[in-house]
Design a protein around this nucleic acid. Structure first.
Lengths: 229, 229
DNA sequence: CGTTATATTGAATGGATTCAAGGCCAGTGG
DNA sequence: CCACTGGCCTTGAATCCATTCAATATAACG
């Protein structure tokens, strides 16, 4: 039931008033996928778009020789299919067990055509995604490894918080390999960067997948990027 | 006169039928800027959006310590202001002498509200920009220097062609510094990469700012990225 | 508890960067 | 017309640091 959806306010669906939400439900299917499972594949025809309701996805592109770039991680409330036209530009896989709302592209387009707020919302989300991609370009192109990792932690912390999850002891659901493929590093360098930040007392790693930010100001200073609260 | 505009078919303006083009002209101002001149500044309130009609712009972000990332180069017909909301997310400067059509954001939004094709066109351009940014993430994060330069040449060649400029002996209007700041390299590494490609006979550099692609297939192979014609 | 996957740490290698010098071209002034 | 200057690009040599290769440690999971 969309009316009680926990991520409604974060997702595209917030654009629809209560009285119209039934129209969304009418064209919606729910789906759940297991960790590592592939939801859509780069190059395949774009037949469905999705809203993530729980879990985490990764959007990635592959090179023929196996190198991989993870463009973004999706959190609950995020929309999958913003950048794609007739085919999916990136592969989407589950980082953790995830649930989604699935929509046939045809249906969604029809709904968009009849609901300006929905359309505007999608446009706005696309702009936001573009801004974040530009930020990512800076990270990838001009930051040193420790700076990348510090920035990554801060940005993820902020996003988690906005998506209603704890932002400070933050859970890193993805593997070191995923982080490396997102930041353009090797897993060893990622690991060493974590260690450096640990040694400086900026973070604590009680477990490999749990990070506590101890000195946010100093972490921001290391990150280089301008990252506010 | 928009009716005779050379880039109309490439730009947002193509969305407007002849009978409505007058409405665009009514809110438009033309402007020209010199090489190196700054058009909009990162962080400044977004009051105008633009269509580039001739020349070339670079969109960049700066780090406090002076490091710079060029997110994109704009060619004639490209729109400036796609990603920005209330403030400009990137600085825009002229690479070469350029001319633009300038629109007050207020006016453009009003026009968008009354012209669905225009709105859709801007949405579509934003999606395209997002796709290109994702491609750029792969370049920055996972390609080796020579691969980056090869990809850059191929992608620029393709874009120039689409924008009605010669795609094969292609003119590199931007400096080596700009290329370096776009690819996340130093100017020396960019220069050495050109030399490598030259030595392998894939390109010829009659002048530093003119590149002839001699063996496109081999260049594509070096690039790694999947780039078609 | 044992097994496998994942993460960390160590040592070496290699390649981009840094630092420095030289070349090239356009513009300027003698 | 030619020397001089400054900006930009290229090349060379040395350095540094991320990567690679390898081993160990820790976590995850049956």
């Amino acid at each position: 039931m969309c009316a009680h959806c926990t991520v409604r306010q974060l997702s595209v669906c917030a654009a629809l008033p209560d009285e119209d939400i039934g129209r969304l439900e009418a064209i919606m299917r729910t789906r759940s996928i297991e960790p590592g499972e592939r939801l859509v594949e780069e190059g395949a025809p774009r037949r469905h778009v999705f809203t993530l309701t729980s879990g985490m996805l990764r959007l990635s592109s592959d090179l023929p020789d196996g190198r991989r770039q993870i463009g973004d991680f999706l959190l609950p409330g995020d929309y999958l299919g913003l950048a794609d036209e007739t085919i999916y530009a990136q592969t989407a896989e589950a980082v953790t067990a995830s649930t989604l709302c699935s929509f046939a592209v045809k249906d969604m387009e029809a709904l968009m055509a009849s609901s300006p707020p929905l359309r505007d919302r999608l446009y706005s989300l696309t702009r936001r995604a573009l801004q974040e991609a530009r930020e990512s370009q800076m990270m990838l192109g001009r930051l040193a490894p420790v700076e990348k990792v510090a920035s990554f932690l801060l940005l993820l912390s902020r996003r988690l918080q906005r998506h209603g999850q704890p932002g400070n002891p933050l859970s890193l659901s993805m593997s070191r390999t995923d982080i490396a493929d997102h930041l353009g590093l090797t897993i060893e360098t990622v690991s060493r960067s974590f260690t450096k930040l640990k040694m400086q007392g900026l973070i604590v790693l009680p477990e490999p997948h749990l990070v506590e930010i101890r000195d946010r100001a100093a972490l921001i200073a290391v990150a280089g990027l301008s990252i506010e609260a």
